[in-house]
């Protein structure tokens, strides 16, 4: 029994570590899309900026905590820079510009070797409290740390969205003409939402780097953005609780399907299994969306409302 537990526990720890990182990542998107209605298809750019800034500063001798703060701040700052020219665009154009931006960031990571070390990536940076925590317990420690970070981000966001500030964001999502007719500076609120969402993504990027200990430009492909979208939609758009649950489900799907060939005999070679898993994940998501289109914590009655 203890043997079995010993085999399963690290496995569950891995799922929860990834889930907590991606939950933080997707909470940033949920603020932008779920509460403000901004279609950001370039969320991964801020994930990358946060991760790269932190580790690059750290390996050049900067203390870890300052590197993390800089990573988060720089991700937020890039949100600000991207927001100024784009937030006046209509929603679908914003989507196009943001996805382009994320690819530009990845190209820079790949090609500006003097700064980012190019395709070889970065490793050998510090991890938080790595000397204080014994190696065999490090992942458990990291999980506790990440859950604590997730909790802080969650409660901070909940407080924000339940405030009058959050009410203005929601009104922008519903129909931005109304808040501007009522004297709210819509552009400024969109910008604030994008800055905070991006800073949160940056924090998630830092967490990812600490866990996987090695990052390269391939870690930050556009698909990462869409994992965040899947998480938000799965959990129920505009529900932070749903976003956390969505992240756990997505990673349970990812990891759970690894062993599918042991349960159901499938006629695939091991190298084909990866693709097969994606099919299974897609199918599971489709079923969920068919039978619960509002997401897990979404409100069904909202789907029926009209303007």
């Amino acid at each position: 029994m203890t043997e079995l537990l010993g085999a399963i526990l690290p496995y569950i720890t891995t799922i929860l570590l990834f889930a907590s990182i991606y939950a933080v990542f997707a909470l940033g998107l949920n603020l932008e899309w779920g509460f403000t209605g901004l279609i950001n298809f370039g969320h991964v750019a801020f994930f990358a900026i946060g991760a790269y800034t932190t580790v690059l500063l750290n390996i050049s001798g900067c203390p870890l905590i300052i590197s993390v703060i800089a990573g988060v701040a720089l991700a937020g700052f890039f949100g600000f820079l991207l927001g100024i020219p784009t937030l006046r665009l209509r929603e679908d154009y914003l989507a196009i510009v943001t996805i382009g931006f994320s690819e530009v960031v990845r190209s820079i990571l790949l090609n500006e070797e003097w700064l980012t070390r190019g395709p070889f990536g970065v490793h050998g940076f510090d991890r938080p409290f790595q000397d204080a925590v014994p190696y065999q317990h490090y992942n458990t420690f990291l999980l506790i740390l990440f859950v604590a970070i997730l909790a802080i981000v969650y409660f901070a966001l909940e407080r924000l969205i339940q405030s009058p500030w959050g009410r203005v964001l929601k009104s922008i999502r519903e129909d931005e003409t109304v808040p501007s007719a009522l004297g709210k500076n819509v552009f400024s609120y969109k910008l604030q939402s994008l800055i905070i969402g991006s800073a949160i993504a940056g924090l998630a990027g830092t967490m990812l780097a600490f866990y996987i200990t090695y990052i390269n430009p391939c870690t930050f492909k556009p698909i990462e953005t869409f994992y965040a979208w899947i998480i938000v939609i799965l959990g129920g758009t505009a529900s932070n609780k749903g976003t956390i649950v969505g992240a756990i489900i997505l990673w349970a799907f990812f990891s759970g399907t690894k062993f599918i060939d042991r349960i159901v005999p499938v006629p695939f070679e091991s190298h084909q299994m990866g693709a097969f898993r994606m099919i299974v994940i897609g199918l599971l998501l489709m079923l969920l969306m068919m039978y619960k289109p509002e997401g897990i914590f979404g409100r069904k009655e909202e789907l029926a409302l009209s303007d």
Binding site: R159, S163, P164, R167, V168, E174, D175, V178, L182, A238
Partner: peptide, 27 residues
């Protein structure tokens, strides 16, 4: 232009200008 997914009361409470809680640092 009703703000569809907000309650009637929330629609009204949105309106007053210069609310303290509309500024993030005040929140």
């Amino acid at each position: 232009r009703a703000l569809t997914k907000m309650s009637v009361l929330e629609n009204l409470m949105l309106a007053p200008t210069m609310q303290r809680g509309e500024r993030i640092w005040n929140v």
